[in-house]
Computed example of a mutant assay.
Amino acid sequence: MSPTPYGQRPLDTPLDTPFAALHRRPGVPLLLPNAWDHASAAVLAEQGFAAIGTTSLGVAAAAGLPDGEAATRDETLRLAGRLGRSGRYLLSVDAESGFSDDPDEVAAFAVELAEAGVVGINLEDGRPDGTLTPTAVHAAKITAIKAAAPALFVNARTDTHWLALSDPVEETDRRLAAYQLAGADGLFVPGLTDLAAIRRLCGSLALPLNILHAPTGPTLLELAALGVARVSLGSYLYRTALAAAVSTALAVRAGTPGPAAPTDAPAYATVQALYADGR
C-alpha cells in the first residue's frame, strides 16, 4: 500500500456510520466511557452507553505493561476481539500511536481491528520520550488507515496541550489542520480545558472535536454548550476503580467501613453473569 499524502475524503463529506453519527448531535456530545476489560465494558453497556472506548493505560496496566510505549499491540487486539462483536455497543479502541511509525504497519493493524468489529480508532501523536511524532508521519498514518479501512472512524489526537510547548496553540492549530487534510474523522485535544480556547476550536474546525474529561475542568454541560462533539473519560474510570479497591481494603483493615466501603458493589452472581456477553 502506498497512500496518497492527504485528502482521502472531502471535508464536506462526513463518514456515514452509526458511530460517526453520534458525533453529529449539536448540543449532545457523545460521552465515551473507557473500559479496560470485558466486565468493565459490560457494566457500562448495561447503563445504556451506546458506544464504549478502551483506555490504553488500563489495558496496559492490567497486563503489567507500560502505556504509550508500543508494548500492548497484542493485548489491544485481543481485547478488541473480545469486545468488538458484543452487539450491545459500538467499540472504539485506543491504539496509542498505532504501535509503529510505518503507515503500512499501522494501517494493517487498523484492518485487524475493523475485522474484529471495532468501529473507531484513537491515534495519538505523543511519544514516550515526551516529544511529538512529526506531523507528516502522523498524517501519513491517518491517510493509510483511511485507505485500508475507510469505514473506521479515525480520531486523530494531538498531545500538544500535555507537553511543555512554548506555544501549544499555534502547534495545535497546525497539527489539527494537517490531520483534517489527511482524512481524519474527528480531532482530539486532551489536556485542553480553557473554555475560550475550546470554543474557538469548535468554531474553526470542520471535524468533530473531542475533549478529555477533567474532574476539575469544564462539565459535560459546559462542553456541550461550546459545541464539543465528544467527551472521553480516558483512564479516569480505571484509576478511580483502583482507588476504590485500595480505599475499601484499607477501610476493612481499619475496621471502619465509612464512606470508603461501597454499599452498591455488585453481587457475585451479578458479576458472574457478565461472562455470557463475552462468549
Rank of each mutant, 00 (worst) to 15 (best):
D67I: 04
V119T: 15
G87M: 10
E171M: 05
L163H: 09
F19Y: 13
P128M: 07
E69C: 05
P26Q: 08
V93S: 04
V228L: 14
V154R: 13
N122R: 04
I121D: 02
A70I: 02
A147L: 13
G53L: 10
A229F: 05
P259Y: 02
S166D: 15
T133G: 00
R199Q: 05
V189A: 07
D277L: 15
E105P: 04
L237K: 01
L113I: 12
S232T: 02
A108C: 15
D37L: 12
G130V: 01
G27T: 09
D185P: 02
I121F: 07
A107W: 14
A39V: 04
R85S: 06
A140D: 03
L15M: 09
G81W: 03
D37G: 07
L165D: 15
G186V: 08
A35M: 01
A184L: 12
A21D: 13
L44S: 04
G258W: 09
R175S: 06
G120H: 11
L176G: 10
L176C: 12
A110C: 15
L221M: 13
L90G: 05
L237W: 06
N34R: 03
D173Y: 13
T270D: 15
T256E: 05
T256V: 10
D194F: 02
A164S: 13
E96D: 12
Y275P: 00
L30W: 10
T76S: 01
P128F: 11
E69W: 08
L226V: 12
I211T: 00
L31I: 14
A70Y: 05
R175W: 08
H38S: 09
E171A: 11
G27C: 08
T172P: 06
G126T: 00
E115T: 13
Q272F: 06
R230D: 05
T131C: 01
R82P: 05
V154N: 13
A196I: 06
A147P: 03
D102L: 06
A265H: 06
E115S: 12
P262K: 02
A178Q: 10
P128Y: 05
A197L: 08
N34K: 03
T172M: 12
A95Q: 00
Q272G: 01
L77D: 03
S86G: 09
Q180M: 14
L192C: 05
T135I: 15
S86A: 05
E124W: 00
T263N: 13
A254C: 02
E222Q: 14
L44W: 01
Q180D: 14
P257T: 12
V119Y: 12
L15W: 05
R230F: 12
S40P: 09
D173I: 04
L91D: 07
D94T: 02
D129Y: 08
V231K: 01
L181D: 13
A225N: 08
L165Y: 07
T270L: 03
H23S: 09
G117W: 10
S100N: 04
L123P: 00
A70T: 04
P134G: 09
A148Q: 12
V231R: 03
A41K: 09
H38L: 07
D194W: 02
L176M: 08
G186A: 10
A95H: 02
G126D: 01
R174P: 08
P257E: 15
T193H: 12
L181S: 14
D104S: 14
P259G: 07
G117Y: 01
A196Q: 04
D264E: 11
T248L: 14
Q47E: 14
